[in-house]
């Protein structure tokens, strides 16, 4: 049968891979442009709540993050499962926030400082007690612009 005949003398032409680098470079540039550097490893597990009336945080350099949530599996033995505050790369307490904010403010350019925003990334199952303490600490540190980090909700309430 003709379909399964042995290959004739003509060898199948090899696929040209000359354009492979171009394709990969294209992907590379896409990722370089559309992503930002991962700044710190998450030591707390955070699922942010959902909301509809959200605004995007525009200038990343003006934003400092406060993460609150239960520690991840690896840290649960040491720190338990109660929600904890993570600033940069370490666990912290509410008292450390003022220090953290002032050092973040120091690192900014003079004329950017009034626009400084603090993004609160809080796990949705956290109790409000700790959040309130953080808010009070932020008021004392006069970092008044805050952003409750949320994801976009699609379905109705």
């Amino acid at each position: 049968m003709g379909k399964f005949q042995k290959k004739s003398g003509k060898a199948s032409p090899e696929m040209s891979t000359a354009s492979l680098p171009d394709i990969v470079f294209m992907l590379l540039f896409f990722f370089m442009v559309s992503t930002t550097m991962r700044d710190s490893t998450m030591m707390v597990k955070i699922t942010v709540p959902q909301a509809t009336e959200i605004k995007k945080l525009e200038k990343k350099s003006l934003v400092s993050y406060i993460n609150v949530g239960p520690p991840t599996k690896a840290f649960q033995k040491l720190y338990g499962t109660e929600p904890k505050i993570q600033l940069n790369d370490q666990f912290a307490s509410v008292d450390d926030i003022q220090q953290f904010i002032s050092s973040e403010r120091e690192a900014m350019k003079e004329n950017d400082r009034p626009q400084m925003t603090t993004s609160l990334k809080v796990d949705k199952d956290t109790k409000m007690g700790i959040v309130t303490d953080i808010k009070q600490a932020l008021r004392r540190a006069s970092a008044l612009k805050i952003n409750y980090s949320t994801s976009k909700r699609v379905e109705d309430l």
Binding site: P21, V24, F25, L27, L28, F31, M32, S34, T35, T36, M37, R38, V48, A51, E53, I54, K55, K56, L57, K60, V63, S119, L120, K135, L138, R139, R140, S142, L144, K145, I146, N147, Y148, S149, T150, S151, K152
Partner: peptide, 28 residues
């Protein structure tokens, strides 16, 4: 080489654009 760079960027960067509800706290 390009693949290596690509994989580096895939690992070292994040995609998410942060968004949320903006609020202003009252000064003390």
């Amino acid at each position: 080489i390009a693949f290596m760079l690509l994989i580096f960027f895939l690992v070292a960067t994040t995609m998410n654009i942060d968004s949320g509800i903006m609020r202003k706290l009252p000064p003390i």
